[in-house]
Design a protein around this nucleic acid. Structure first.
Lengths: 226, 226
DNA sequence: GAAATTATCGCAAAAGTGATGCCAAAAATT
DNA sequence: AATTTTTGGCATCACTTTTGCGATAATTTC
């Protein structure tokens, strides 16, 4: 899953917090949705089905704990990650928070780096659980975990982009990936690179993996065949 | 001392707790003795001289605090580790518990992993406990308890960070650990350190263990190979 | 259907970027 | 005081991207 496809819901009654946290997550490339109170938070959670929810514990009317409990009841949000924002010293809420189904908590005052790294760590865990890490395709084995590729017994270490490009193409052998799709996935649509970039990488792969594994569909894109 | 020679006394009036905790500790290889109330607990403690006692605070008649005080009076049980089991929120008992001579406490509901790791951590303090977790990987032996590493017969003593870094990398030989992951695990995500820190440590390890054991995957991270 | 035109791709070399290694020195631990 | 850990500054190297041009396929025109 691409970073830009990850939705984070931010629920806090303080606009300041909303802004600073929102800013940091957005600039990391995540999609951020905000809500200013518990009710709205729960509503948006159900509607948007975010991957991660950051909930302030202390909020007027419906507090984070209650909101979390409601969120957890929704079938589609069972596995959503929930992080609590709590003031230091409110240790009771931490405990209760875990009880309510929180996955982690962050204490205020918020340090952006800590925040971002926690979010990353959580999402990584989430990702790991979801995705099987090895893909086998005939003579090719792609091992995301070890970042290496085995082709006909030989072990090949590929640089990042080449590795990701191959991963993508090989994930659905035979399928033609349009240039746009490839750019979106491997480079991310924020980065704008020239049109020749893709074929340069394809060429590198052809050199390393085998010339005939990659077919060009002119005007469309490329596909990987076994 | 061998794990199987370590006796743990479990005192709780709820059979359920006795069973679940007992099961977890037994399957870790410890010898578990149980008692269903304070009196019986104190009696068994004196008779069996366990290495660690897990005491429920809330018990009819004689509560955990009282039991602990009695236990501590026995000359042969001065150094025995005592852990309290307390329901969340009973924070008073925690304080009183430490007063009474507890070494740690665990809150209910009990999470087996937390329990086991606390028990391990406490027992580790016993000097005479022999290498509980040793990991062998080809030419490397990692001795978690003594922060020591044996490589090709040579014994190497590593500083903490280096040791932890090596432990992490060696825990899954071949797996590539991303810089982020390494930071999270070795440094903890609260601490924010600069980017050069990791490679300096890697360099130290390369000097000490062997240059070719550590491979760099540029743009991703490092991996350990045997 | 053949030739001309145009778009797209392959390739190689060059330029650019960013990550890593290494050092030395400052901080922090012990 | 000695050791360990972190930092910052370079130098370097590896990878990535750009660029330019020729080749090839697709499309249009005759």
């Amino acid at each position: 899953m691409n970073k830009k496809d990850i939705k984070i819901l931010l629920v806090d009654d303080e606009p300041d917090i909303l802004e600073i946290v929102g800013y940091n997550l957005t600039s990391e490339g995540y999609q951020v949705i905000t809500a200013e109170n518990g009710q709205e938070g729960v509503k948006k959670a159900k509607k948007e089905l975010p991957h991660l929810i950051i909930l302030d514990v202390m909020m007027p009317e419906m507090d984070g704990i209650e909101a979390c409990e409601l969120i957890r009841k929704h079938p589609d949000l069972q596995n959503t990650l929930v992080v609590f924002l709590t003031a230091r010293g409110e240790d009771y809420s931490q405990v209760a928070g875990f009880d309510a189904g929180a996955d982690d908590y962050i204490t205020k005052p918020i340090k952006p780096k800590v925040l971002v790294s926690k979010v990353k760590a959580l999402l990584r865990r989430f990702k790991d659980e979801e995705a099987a890490d090895m893909v086998k395709l005939g003579s090719l084995t792609i091992n995301r975990d070890e970042y290496k590729i085995t082709s006909k017994g030989k072990e090949i270490i590929l640089p990042r982009k080449e590795f990701e490009l191959l991963s993508l193409l090989a994930s659905k052998p035979g399928k033609v990936f349009k240039r746009d799709e490839i750019l979106d996935t491997v480079w991310g649509n924020e980065v704008v690179v020239g049109g020749r970039t893709i074929d340069v990488h394809i060429r590198k792969l052809r050199e390393k993996i085998g010339d005939d594994s990659f077919k060009t569909i002119k005007g469309v894109g490329y596909k990987f065949v076994d």
